[in-house]
Amino acid sequence: MNVLLCSINTLKRLYDISAVEVGQHFYWQIGGFQVHAQVLITSWVVIAILLVSAILAVRNPQTIPTDSQNFFEYVLEFIRDVSKTQIGEEYGPWVPFIGTMFLFIFVSNWSGALLPWKIIQLPHGELAAPTNDINTTVALALLTSIAYFYAGLSKKGLGYFGKYIQPTPILLPINILEDFTKPLSLSFRLFGNILADELVVVVLVSLVPLVVPIPVMFLGLFTSGIQALIFATLAAAYIGESMEGHH
């Protein structure tokens, strides 16, 4: 009996160690909603990193930029470049949106890959990159959808919906479907990539804790950056597409 209990205990513990905690969340009850607290916490950290570094960098702007100011101006230039190539001439008002998307996703991804989140212990689940959670990516993707609808409607008025029957009305269903597939593909691409990265690292760490995960972690860093860039580029491309049209 004792042995049985002990073995059950052991199995339970074995399960605990081998459990890669996907789908385990630390819930907070806010109003009638259950929110994933670990995502909120890491998002706040990411937001804090971004805000503090940006404020520190531009607190005392110089004509000849100091190091941090130089870096942030370089980042801004990069974002402007991306939005200019994707949106076209009227990219100005959309730089903040694209920049927010890119920086938030990028810092989220890299924080997941570089910060030792797991040192901090939660009652349930574990801290990881905010983009590791589908809710975050869906929110970002829906924001993108709203943004490109707003862009199109504010540019062309109701004539924006004319693009649904371009070039032929036969394509109407497909064009309508596109509005649903765009946020879906955006959110799932980001979520899948980041989750896969972190899972691979976690699994490798749990198998061979040292050295072996390092190349995969570098790969994760690379894909994280690329995913942030892809998200920002696609968001800009969608906005540009809905603003262009041919008339």
């Binding site: 605990d16 797991k118 009652p123 760490v205 804790p209 995960p213």
Partner: peptide, 27 residues
Amino acid sequence: GYWPSAGSFGFNTDILATNPINLSVVL
């Protein structure tokens, strides 16, 4: 590999599970 589950915040001091070595190498 067993940490006190459920209940409270805390620090995980397990060096292998929290992976700081690899992270510091990567950094």
